[in-house]
Design a protein around this nucleic acid. Structure first.
Lengths: 132, 132
DNA sequence: GACAATGTACTCGGATAAAATCTGTCCGAGTTTTGAGGG
DNA sequence: CCCTCAAAACTCGGACAGATTTTATCCGAGTACATTGTC
């Protein structure tokens, strides 16, 4: 069980957007070069972030991707959910009468994890990055 | 990001072993039928559990899989690690000077998750299962 | 009745393969800015 | 100077493809117990 590289890319892209320019749109080409990653693949991740409502896309010349107004509230969990989906990380495939104890334990663990990641804001980490 | 079905199978198999027979070996066929799962695939998971030292295999007639002595200490995390491996769930693929803030956050979250799952013992859940 | 040979019930582990997912590329279509040309 | 039209710079999104992982299946080999057969 691993987070995909796509999540990695998306988190870093968000971090860059928050740290760099809250208002001016940044093109995929710039982001991709900054991160050393393929443009076309990165754009897929950004599209997902747009659909999740975390950023906005500005088309046309001088276009690119821009943060939405409420960017300060965006958490790691938001980005992860946008990329990986919101499905539970555990789904019991057996049919032992409605309730599965194994599932209960793992889901409880997952909720704890999500609470932690939901409290970690991208903006906070970005500030720490600037300070260094 | 999801735990694989293999983990699901392994956890349930362990639960069954703990709940049923601490001393007598249980054959794959019995376990597989109990869980409604292919024998051959399940045996692969059990092999991993053996290699991880969580259970023992007894070959020959009346053979099967049996718990090791210290079965009361086995946690969910032990089983998960045996099946999924112990690699971190996040590995930053960028090369921005040794330390990655994104990675730090996610790894911290992971450690919390592992602590939770490490404290959940299979035996405890098995008892709850019997009680119902 | 004892002991060896054979059969049977198991696990073990490698080879194989179908299906899903991840990662990435390519390209055409739409959209906005920039720039050039003609009146 | 102004308006129009074309070019350029972007994102958007679908189609495609290679690599990897997951989820299996099959089968031969090895091992322990049970049974049979022979002396």
């Amino acid at each position: 069980m691993k987070y995909s590289q796509a999540t990695d890319y998306a988190l870093h892209a968000m971090l860059y957007l928050v740290a760099a320019a809250p208002d001016k749109p940044v093109g995929v080409a710039v982001l991709a070069e900054k991160m050393g990653v393929s443009q076309t693949y990165l754009s897929k991740m950004l599209t997902k972030l747009v659909k999740a409502g975390l950023i906005q896309s500005v088309s046309g010349a001088n276009g690119g991707y821009r943060l939405r107004r409420s960017y300060e509230d965006i958490s790691f969990l938001d980005v992860i959910h946008a990329i990986e989906g919101t499905a539970s990380m555990f789904e019991c495939s057996l049919d032992h009468g409605s309730e599965c104890l194994v599932q209960q334990v793992v889901v409880e663990a997952e909720q704890q994890l999500e609470q932690f990641l939901g409290n970690k804001k991208i903006a906070d980490v970005a500030k720490r990055m600037k300070a260094e």
